[in-house]
């Protein structure tokens, strides 16, 4: 375990908490894509299936449970909470999940480490995580005006990915047999998707004004 990896996990958790607190405090989920949240829950559930039989460390197990619980809470708020669900931007959040789920499932069946149910679900979760932010980015693009907390959420998620890349570089340099092409390539794609958003986020931050995406 290195400092990059720990920072990444904490940033990931922070991003989810920022979103959860925003929803809880403002009783509004305006600007948040339910599709992306549901895809993330699917990512966590398919990746952390081994929670029940593969114990690696308390650190890992606690994070797994917390990720599943907090993203379930976000979805619960958006779908079930009486006040919050009325603020959900259903008309703009129209991205089809099947466009992401089907290609990821097919790719996981073809390109995987070993042909077993657990391995294929795990690989599927790696591919799906790479693209799960797309409905959220499309929603931000459509609504243009991004409120601070939603902007911070996407920014923290991007930082989390960037720190995972640093972690891989560090591990590759220090651990003799460390190699994971599927994870690295997916991680690079995922981080790449944030770059455009990062550019506008940092510009808005430098000029200390509200984040506005171009048409």
């Amino acid at each position: 375990m290195n400092i990059f990896r720990v920072s990444a996990d904490i940033l990931h958790l922070l991003s989810i908490l920022v979103l959860l607190l925003k929803i809880h405090a403002t009783k509004s989920c305006a600007g948040i894509s339910l599709k992306t949240q549901e895809l993330y829950l699917a990512v966590f559930v398919t990746r952390y299936l081994d929670l029940f039989w593969n114990f690696h460390s308390l650190y890992n197990s606690v994070f797994k449970v917390v990720y599943i619980a907090t993203s379930s809470m976000i979805i619960w708020y958006m779908k079930r909470h009486r006040g919050v669900k009325q603020t959900y931007d259903k008309d703009h959040d129209t991205f089809r999940y099947l466009f992401l789920i089907v290609p990821c499932a097919v790719l996981a069946l073809i390109v995987n480490g070993r042909f077993s149910l657990f391995e294929i679900l795990w690989t599927f979760s790696i591919y799906l995580e790479a693209v799960a932010i797309l409905p959220q980015l499309v929603l931000l693009q459509r609504t243009k005006n991004v409120d601070n907390l939603t902007g911070n959420y996407v920014f923290l998620l991007g930082l989390y990915r960037a720190f995972y890349i640093l972690n891989w570089i560090y591990r590759y340099a220090t651990e003799p047999h460390y190699s994971a092409w599927i994870v690295w390539l997916s991680g690079l794609v995922q981080t790449g998707l944030y770059l455009d958003f990062f550019y506008y986020y940092l510009q808005a931050w430098k000029q200390s004004k509200k984040l506005q995406l171009p048409s």
Binding site: D50, H56, N60, W122, Y178, A180, V183
Partner: peptide
Amino acid sequence: AAGEEVKDEL
């Protein structure tokens, strides 16, 4: 074994 190392990440 290579795959197992990766699964220690979240």
